[in-house]
Design a protein around this nucleic acid. Structure first.
Lengths: 193, 193
DNA sequence: GAACGACTAGGACAATTGTCCTACGATGCC
DNA sequence: GGCATCGTAGGACAATTGTCCTAGTCGTTC
């Protein structure tokens, strides 16, 4: 059963992209069907509703996020360098962020406006980052306020993303990344209490 | 001519609210017409298209923003206190921000995703804040990097807004406001070079 | 080769979208 | 009073929305 991962995965993959680039509400079944190359009616064999696709997209994003963090965990030397990977992400993905905002933040805000039942699931992707960042800060010897610091870093990235989306000023993004990197270096240098 | 400010203003006022609460795309003519209490067809006497309403809404928001900043300017003692007014806005408007995000930021991101021609106009509201904040920092004796500091404060507010929308944690907002207030106090205390 | 399952195409469906049109009521000017 | 203008109501319009249904094509298994 379900050996047809291909079509289903293609739908989820395209939907993931379109939901990000155009927004969930703005993306229609026709858009997805056209991009995948299947008929619109055929859709309902794989998904019973649009919300079910959104659910699958969120699941995929959540998994991809975990995978990315696991790669950082494997590659980077220490917790400070890993946190820096996250701080730099607003530069790494700047092209997309400039045009479509942060995938996590923009979906979260859109679903909040729609009072959508899946809004908490979208916010849960933030939680993945939050927990991971907190773990890194804890490894830095800041177990006590690890979550507070994690939230601060998250807020930084969201703020920069929105501003970059509005002003499209690369120098601003670079400045803020450097400012945050200095802040992180301070934290890493401070002896554990 | 145009003595009928009432209906037109009512449309713009309701549209302003609905665009904020539900998003521009999600708000239909019927929604606005029902809320105002007029027929849907009558609409096109006052506005030729939905985009024209958006244009009017943005203009109103821009004016309201300027008015608010002017009030702060009149009431507050000095530039530092005025900047603090802005920093505190994420607490003042927390109820709405929690549910619908920042009005400026969320509209800006939504229009970016739609590739909407009015996106720059929406971002221009940010510019109003940016210029005003920069003027305050200049008055603080930081004329050289006034704009850099202004952008930093803007990014702060957007970051906190998105995170509050996702996590709805008042303690987080308060912490970030206090952190930012300390940062501002540092700036104000540093002697002008 | 018949039967069955997984998978798909294509269209029907009511509802809603933004847009446009015509006709009616009011108000004021000549 | 007659007339024009401003504002409004109500509906028509094609297009699109999410959803659902049916008929069909595959490949596999007996």
């Amino acid at each position: 059963m379900k050996e047809t991962g291909t079509t289903r995965d293609a739908i989820v993959g395209i939907a993931d992209t379109l939901f990000y680039e155009r927004g969930f509400e703005r993306t229609s079944f026709s858009d997805i069907a056209d991009a995948v190359g299947i008929s619109r009616g055929n859709f309902y064999y794989h998904f019973k509703s649009k919300d079910e696709i959104l659910d699958a997209v969120i699941a995929v994003r959540s998994r991809n996020t975990r995978d990315m963090l696991a790669r950082w965990e494997a590659r980077s030397a220490g917790p400070a360098e890993r946190i820096l990977c996250y701080i730099r992400i607003v530069l790494t993905n700047r092209g997309k962020i400039m045009h479509h905002g942060c995938p996590v933040g923009s979906l979260s805000v859109e679903l909040a406006k729609l009072d959508h039942p899946l809004r908490p699931d979208a916010s849960a992707i933030f939680q993945v980052f939050r927990d991971w960042l907190a773990a890194q800060f804890a490894a830095l010897g800041r177990a006590k306020d690890a979550d507070v610091l994690a939230m601060h870093v998250l807020a930084f990235s969201q703020g920069v993303a929105v501003m970059d989306n509005a002003f499209r000023d690369k120098a601003f993004v670079q400045r803020e990344v450097e400012r945050m990197a200095r802040w992180l270096a301070d934290i890493a240098a401070t002896p554990t209490t």
